[in-house]
Computed example of a mutant assay.
Amino acid sequence: MAGQPDLGRADLVTMLAELHARPAAEVPDRIGSMELAWLVHLVEQRYDRQLDLTDDQLAGIRTVDDALVVFRTSLTAPADG
């Protein structure tokens, strides 16, 4: 589907596994502020787009699934420009 990012849960888990140098199977579902910053950075690089996330959106991200929902929403929003 056009405009739909190909970002999936497995992608985020793989990114977190790289951060902690551990197998993806050992990545916990809950993420902290360091993991969140890492994910935002990598997703922005991968899609060459700044994720313009609000404080409320960021505060609501506590798990990999939370991050996936917020990132997909941000990536499908019209880019400013």
Rank of each mutant, 00 (worst) to 15 (best):
M1G: 11
A2P: 12
Q4D: 11
Q4S: 10
P5G: 03
P5R: 10
D6Q: 06
D6M: 05
L7Q: 08
R9M: 00
A10L: 00
A10E: 11
A10T: 04
D11P: 00
D11K: 06
D11T: 08
L12R: 01
L12Q: 01
V13E: 06
V13C: 01
V13Y: 01
V13K: 04
T14K: 11
M15V: 10
L16V: 07
A17E: 12
E18R: 12
E18K: 06
L19A: 11
A21L: 14
R22G: 02
R22E: 10
P23Q: 08
P23F: 05
A24I: 08
A24G: 03
A25M: 00
A25G: 00
A25C: 00
E26T: 09
E26L: 12
V27K: 08
D29Q: 15
D29T: 13
D29K: 15
R30A: 15
I31G: 03
G32C: 01
S33A: 12
S33I: 13
M34L: 15
M34P: 03
M34V: 15
E35P: 00
E35D: 15
L36I: 06
A37V: 15
A37P: 11
W38H: 15
L39E: 06
L39A: 04
V40H: 05
V40A: 01
V40Y: 06
H41F: 11
H41N: 07
H41P: 00
L42Q: 15
L42D: 15
V43D: 13
Q45P: 02
R46A: 03
Y47L: 10
Y47P: 13
Y47G: 08
Y47T: 14
D48F: 12
R49I: 11
Q50R: 15
L51E: 11
D52A: 12
D52E: 15
D52M: 13
L53V: 09
D55C: 04
D55Q: 11
D55P: 02
D56K: 04
Q57F: 07
L58D: 03
L58K: 10
L58P: 02
A59S: 07
A59W: 02
A59E: 08
A59C: 00
G60H: 05
G60P: 00
G60N: 01
G60W: 04
I61P: 00
I61G: 03
R62W: 09
R62H: 11
R62T: 06
R62V: 09
T63M: 05
T63Q: 11
V64W: 02
V64L: 05
D65Y: 08
L68Y: 02
L68W: 02
V69F: 10
V70R: 06
F71V: 02
F71E: 07
F71G: 02
R72W: 04
R72H: 04
T73A: 01
S74N: 09
L75D: 04
L75G: 02
L75I: 09
T76V: 11
T76L: 11
A77V: 09
A77G: 01
P78L: 06
P78G: 05
A79K: 15
D80Q: 13
D80W: 12
D80S: 10
D80E: 13
